[in-house]
Simulated assay, not measured.
Amino acid sequence: MSDSSIDLAKIRVVVIAAKVQQRQAFQHTLTQWGMTVLACMSPEQLEPSHLLLPAQLWLVDSDYNEQLYTVLDSPLQPLSESESRLPTSELTKPQVLVGFEPAPRGSEINLYAKWQRKLKRKLVSLLGLPSSLVQTTSVAAKRYQPWQKVVVLVVSSLNDMAAGRDFLNSLPSSLPIAIVLIFPPKNELNSYLHSLPKALTANNEWRCQVVDLSLNMQAGQCYIIPPELDVVCDSTGRLIVGSESNLTQSQSYIMQIVQNFSLALADQLICIEFADSSALYQSDFIDYLASQGSKLWQHKEGSSTSVSELNREPVQASVAQLAKHLQYLMTDSTETL
């Protein structure tokens, strides 16, 4: 069987893993390889309807969870011969891989690549695929840039937006971060919504877009959330667009979005408030974010923040200091600021 006769995109996968890092590593590796991930979730998110998904492969990685394995003991939806689309087309039941070694951080490039090869070899054996496919990467996936942190910028005026633009100008787009920009409803920025991507990226290499459809975030990209839409983020970094938002109060809207991102991303979230209103800079909300492992920084122009203060949460600093501090955080640099 030749590699060219196998369309990996037709191999559909459901991922269940308890740890966020493991879910992201599974999804990134499978997507990069060219397979189609139908769902990626924690054990608590599994519902009976997921068992009806037409997947050929289930990856399950979790500490023993009686409820989870009770659900999975139920018959998974059988696949017809035409649906299986695997090289061994006589398979009419999904394959299940239970347990796999923990994924290293994506920043540990050599260890992460080794982990990916191990996973691919395991799946090649399980699915009866040619071993040469271990080295295959889809053309589309080569353009995918995984993120390690998501940075939410909160703005509420044109002046705030200018500071956000300067922040992007000071930040290399090559960093493994995705940027999300939010502003409250009934705001002057609504009038400029679709011109913002061009304005924000005129003097830098970031790519920017207004979110109108659900998508997977990538590093090097800035996503603008329209305040009239109800957009939530899941633990894999997928922005899910729902119906129109019913929140009209600025503070409630901003807090709800940041709270959702913090709940989904935990310590992978950094929120930077550029807004003069300081809606988030309240002790109870700071404590909430800290309990999730998320960070809250605030733009304070003219700040003479010291190095020791930058290493304490919450951070208040100028645009230049915030950008520099983020770069050092992402590169684990030990140089002094």
Results as ranks from 00 to 15, higher is better:
156 S>N: 14
152 V>E: 03
148 Q>P: 00
193 L>M: 15
175 L>C: 11
143 R>G: 06
171 L>V: 11
122 K>T: 13
194 H>Q: 12
133 L>C: 06
154 V>M: 03
180 V>T: 14
157 S>T: 15
124 V>K: 01
125 S>A: 14
145 Q>F: 12
141 A>C: 08
145 Q>E: 12
150 V>Y: 12
139 V>N: 08
159 N>C: 03
187 N>H: 06
172 P>C: 12
150 V>N: 14
155 V>S: 07
191 S>Y: 15
158 L>Y: 06
189 L>E: 01
121 R>Y: 09
164 G>L: 03
188 E>M: 09
148 Q>E: 07
182 I>L: 14
193 L>H: 08
144 Y>Q: 05
136 T>E: 13
194 H>L: 10
177 I>G: 08
173 S>C: 03
147 W>E: 01
161 M>S: 11
149 K>F: 07
190 N>V: 05
190 N>M: 08
120 K>Q: 10
140 A>Y: 08
171 L>D: 11
155 V>D: 02
187 N>V: 05
167 F>Q: 04
198 K>H: 05
129 L>F: 00
146 P>N: 03
126 L>C: 06
173 S>Q: 07
135 Q>A: 15
140 A>W: 08
193 L>Q: 12
169 N>V: 05
168 L>G: 07
131 S>K: 14
182 I>G: 02
128 G>A: 02
174 S>I: 03
144 Y>R: 15
153 L>Y: 08
178 A>P: 15
159 N>W: 02
169 N>M: 04
167 F>K: 05
175 L>Y: 07
188 E>F: 04
141 A>E: 13
165 R>G: 02
197 P>C: 10
179 I>D: 04
170 S>D: 14
155 V>T: 09
162 A>P: 00
129 L>S: 00
177 I>A: 15
141 A>I: 11
158 L>S: 07
155 V>Y: 03
186 K>F: 06
186 K>W: 02
141 A>T: 10
131 S>E: 14
177 I>D: 05
182 I>T: 13
162 A>I: 07
163 A>Q: 10
134 V>N: 10
146 P>K: 10
153 L>T: 06
184 P>F: 09
190 N>G: 10
189 L>N: 02
152 V>Q: 09
138 S>L: 11
197 P>K: 12
136 T>G: 00
125 S>Q: 13
185 P>N: 05
